[in-house]
């Protein structure tokens, strides 16, 4: 196989890695917000449930969570063929894609997992804003919503950009875990070449894809951070 053929083959896998990355970010980042608010709720049961969920999700390996999401529906409903295998078959028959069901399982696991990590970053950011900022808003006769939207939010965003950047960079590398239920992400593709064509170098070559992407992310996130550095809170 030529270098370009290998590149093409690995790119097919990297698109899946990028898909997992994008969906996790687009779904997980907003989902983290209600979880953060639950964790800060004054209503004790909501707070407790939220804290336990976050504790479990952050305390258990993501790989295990992928397995659990993948196998749990079948066990729960005493179904011989797991839900996601059915989806796999459905998509294969109708669209000729062979791992769509498993990709969905991975997307669910990643989204939940990252939403919990994000929620802790949001919570830390929100709780780090001094009480004085809220009180300054209150004495000016502003409502709670106005204070949050117009005063607190931007300060929180400024503070969470660096930890979010770390999480986002970890996320692209974590997509390799999809491997565990045989989703054809880039490392799975490289392994495929090792198994069928006895080519080892493509496995090392995958590193270049990650590095390129992380480099891009670093530049973009650095720009965002810089853009928000015009004030100091």
């Amino acid at each position: 196989m030529s270098f370009w053929e290998v590149t093409q083959f690995l790119l097919d896998g990297f698109y899946i890695s990028l898909l997992i990355f994008a969906v996790t970010l687009v779904c997980g980042a907003p989902l983290g917000l209600p979880i953060a608010f639950c964790s800060m709720s004054r209503f004790k049961p909501v707070k407790a449930i939220s804290k336990v969920v976050v504790w479990i999700v952050r305390g258990v390996p993501l790989m295990l969570q992928i397995f659990i999401i993948y196998y749990a529906p079948g066990l729960l409903f005493k179904d011989q063929i797991p839900l996601f295998s059915r989806l796999d078959r459905y998509f294969f028959i109708n669209y000729g894609i062979n791992d769509a069901g498993r990709i969905i399982a991975v997307l669910i696991a990643f989204t939940i997992n990252y939403a919990c990590y994000f929620s802790e970053i949001y919570r830390g950011g929100i709780e780090s804003i001094s009480k004085g900022q809220y009180e300054a808003g209150y004495v000016l006769g502003l409502t709670k919503q106005q204070i949050f939207r117009k005063i607190i939010l931007k300060q929180v965003i400024q503070r969470i950009v660096p930890p979010m950047s770390n999480e986002i960079i970890t996320l692209i590398k974590d997509t390799a875990l999809a491997n565990c239920i045989v989703v054809c992400e880039i490392i799975k593709q490289a392994n495929e070449l090792a198994a069928t064509k006895a080519l080892i170098w493509p496995l090392f070559y995958t590193g270049a894809f990650y590095l390129l992407f992380v480099g891009m992310l670093t530049i973009i996130l650095g720009k965002v951070e810089k853009k928000l550095s015009y004030f100091r809170s």
């Binding site: 001094s130 004085g132 900022q133 009180e135 300054a136 004495v139 005063i151 931007k154 300060q155 400024q158 004030f231 100091r232 809170s233």
Partner: peptide, 14 residues
């Protein structure tokens, strides 16, 4: 009806 000026200002930094 009231205004309050704080000891440590509490200006909105952004």
């Amino acid at each position: 009806h009231f205004g309050l000026v704080f000891q440590n200002f509490n200006l909105f930094p952004q």
